[in-house]
């Protein structure tokens, strides 16, 4: 990354800034406790699973939220933001709508300790194959069905 701005830009900019404080960032207590990459990977898969599942049904996010009895915003954040820590209650209700194991959904959401090492691998494989933009292809359909099976099977 290289900045290519004339000196005049910085002259005006410094005058705009004045003596204002500029600090930003979450203090270290949260930084040290930040989510690990594994839980982010799992949540990416969880988000894609939620989106593909409802699209497969032809539902929008609002319909899914209504069916599960949760906020639409919670559905959108689950689908779009892997850093969002979902509410356990919302994950439980969604698992009931999907007909999959709520325990495994909780694991994917990073809300309970992961006790199934294969689930994460399955989730990453699913996330890598899923395309959340386009219409569900046959391959995505198969991928979704396989992942539903993985979430449904008991250990």
């Amino acid at each position: 990354m290289k900045l290519n701005y004339p000196k005049e830009w910085f002259e005006k900019s410094a005058l705009i800034e004045g003596d204002d404080e500029i600090g930003a960032g979450v203090p270290p207590v949260n930084w040290c406790a930040r989510e690990d990459e594994a839980s982010v990977e799992s949540r990416i898969a969880l988000g894609q699973f939620v989106e593909l599942w409802r699209r497969d049904k032809g539902w929008n996010a609002e319909r899914l939220a209504n069916e599960a009895g949760i906020d639409t915003g919670e559905v959108l954040e689950l689908e779009k933001d892997p850093h969002h820590e979902p509410e356990p209650d919302a994950v439980y209700k969604l698992a009931n709508v999907f007909g999959v194991s709520s325990r495994k959904m909780m694991e994917l959401a990073g809300l309970v300790q992961n006790r199934n090492p294969y689930l994460r691998e399955e989730a990453i494989r699913f996330a890598a194959q899923a395309d959340s933009i386009s219409k569900l292809t046959d391959a995505e359909q198969q991928s979704l069905e396989a992942f539903v099976s993985a979430l449904t099977l008991t250990n």
Binding site: A14, I16, D19, I22, G23, A24, W31
Partner: peptide, 27 residues
């Protein structure tokens, strides 16, 4: 932006007048 801060001599509550201005908008 995970973290950003400026040197103490560029902060008005520590060093008045500050040494340099403009770091914040550059970042």
């Amino acid at each position: 932006v995970e973290f950003v801060s400026t040197a103490p001599w560029n902060r008005v509550e520590i060093n008045k007048p500050v040494k340099y201005r403009g770091a914040g908008r550059i970042f």
